[in-house]
Design a protein around this nucleic acid. Structure first.
Length: 417
DNA sequence: TCTGGGGTCCTAGGACCC
DNA sequence: TCTGGGGTCCTAGGACCC
């Protein structure tokens, strides 16, 4: 029995989510923008065909939008996460072990002959599309990296592609290394310097040579491209290792109070995520950033804070975070971004009690679950800890956001008969 | 005028130790 | 006069991904 790796990939995922509730946009050009409506982060097939690249700033494609009557949406993550959850719930029901790799992709294992596995993949695609309304593609091969490539072929053909040894070998001299998952701009440049352009060039190298020139990453890539799986579905079982909350501001700011407002907002949300995952954090980082474009490029900074006792208590974290902002802040610098990164997790259940914990800490600790419950019921941010400025100076601009069709009762569509 | 946010893994280099 | 080297642990930052 042969063991295969499948990769399920949702087509133009954010666009497909928006189209679920706007069926009139099927077959029409649609884009989804990043926060602040800054760049294009998802494109319908029609937009890709016009030649709009991924990640391009919105202002550079204004004319194209006008000329082609493009429908535009601000990104709406609550909606995408909810649709994602539905898609992978169906996949999980059909295939017991899956490794969700991103909001719109998951790996899984299939066992059997090439013919039977391909037939199974076609059925899976059909079931998911029928039950969720989201179009998907499936790539199948003997390793994740090849399955990933197969899924790009699938998108251009009937939606499912199984790449077995013979066909894969015949393709190798036609596939550039840059097209391979894990080979970015930097790595492909290094490859080129060594005279390696295609997959065929690379897989013909000695294992020892690859290790010397390209390290463990290169070595792993070599075996993956030689149909020897270098990583199983291990990540499926491993807990998340960090939580990052950050956002660019609408406008730059000189004001430390605005920065504190933003940092405390991100910290509240990150701590809420942490609690919902059942973790404590022992180490976290506060970032203040400047614009990536302009005079203050290197003026930002970050501070890593190590806690005496692991915690998920918003108050305890907040105190430290505000001190960190005081330490990082430089007067006269135009800030454009702030964020919080939580790391070094441990399970909240059965955590050691600290003798240093005072009365207040114990009381607020009991408050946290209640706070999360209220916010879950009434929407994030309905009850807040700490002060909150009246300013929305640091918030992001979202001009084109779709209604919260699936995550907020007031936006649920009604059917009229 | 206008350029995202949320992740993972790896590596180089400093601090420290014997 | 002579002035090690190897190990570990940690962190910041790079590279990559969607």
């Amino acid at each position: 029995m042969q063991k295969w790796v499948g990769l399920l990939d949702c087509n133009n995922f954010f666009v497909s989510c928006e189209r679920l509730f706007r069926p009139d946009l099927k077959g029409k050009p649609v884009m989804v923008l990043s926060s602040n409506d800054g760049c294009v982060v998802a494109r319908s097939q029609e937009i890709k065909d016009i030649g709009v690249p991924m990640g391009v700033p919105l202002f550079q494609v204004k004319d194209i939008i006008k000329d082609n009557n493009v429908a535009i949406f601000s990104s709406h993550f609550a909606l995408y996460r909810d649709v994602s959850r539905r898609v992978f719930a169906v996949l999980r029901r059909e295939i017991n072990a899956i490794e969700q790799y991103s909001i719109d992709e998951a790996f899984f294992v299939l066992v059997g002959s090439a013919e039977s596995v391909e037939a199974r993949a076609l059925v899976l695609k059909d079931i998911i599309e029928r039950e969720t309304g989201i179009p998907v593609s499936i790539g199948v091969a003997r390793s994740k990296t090849i399955a990933k490539y197969a899924s790009t072929v699938a998108k251009k053909t009937k939606g499912v592609k199984l790449l077995a040894a013979k066909e894969w070998k015949s393709l190798q001299s036609k596939i550039e290394l840059r097209e391979i998952w894990g080979v970015g701009a930097k790595t492909s440049q290094t490859f080129r310097k060594n005279g390696l352009l295609t997959v065929a060039d690379f897989v013909n190298l000695e294992k020892r040579t690859v290790k010397t020139l390209f390290g463990v990453v290169g070595e792993r890539l070599l075996s993956e491209l030689n149909e020897i799986s270098a990583s199983g579905l291990t990540r499926a079982l491993e807990p998340q290792k960090s939580i990052l909350h950050t956002r660019s501001f609408k406008e730059t700011t000189l004001d430390i109070e605005v920065l504190k407002d933003a940092v405390s907002h991100h910290l509240r949300e990150a701590a809420e995520d942490l609690r919902s995952m059942g973790f404590l954090t022992k180490s976290f980082t506060v970032y203040l950033g400047t614009s990536r474009h302009g005079d203050y490029l290197l003026q930002g900074g970050s501070k890593n804070l190590i806690l005496l006792t692991p915690t998920n208590d918003t108050f305890t974290l907040m105190k430290e975070a505000m001190k960190a902002v005081d330490g990082l802040y430089k007067a006269g610098v135009l800030y454009k971004k702030a964020g919080v990164l939580l790391t070094d997790f441990s399970p909240a259940a059965g955590a050691q009690l600290s003798f240093l914990e005072d009365e207040r800490e114990i009381r607020t600790k009991q408050l946290m679950p209640l706070l999360d419950l209220v916010n879950k019921k009434n929407g994030r941010g309905s009850v807040l800890l700490g002060t909150r400025l009246k300013t929305d100076e640091w918030q992001s601009a979202q001009m084109k956001k779709s209604p919260a069709y699936t995550t907020n009762w007031k936006d649920v569509p009604t059917v009229k008969a």
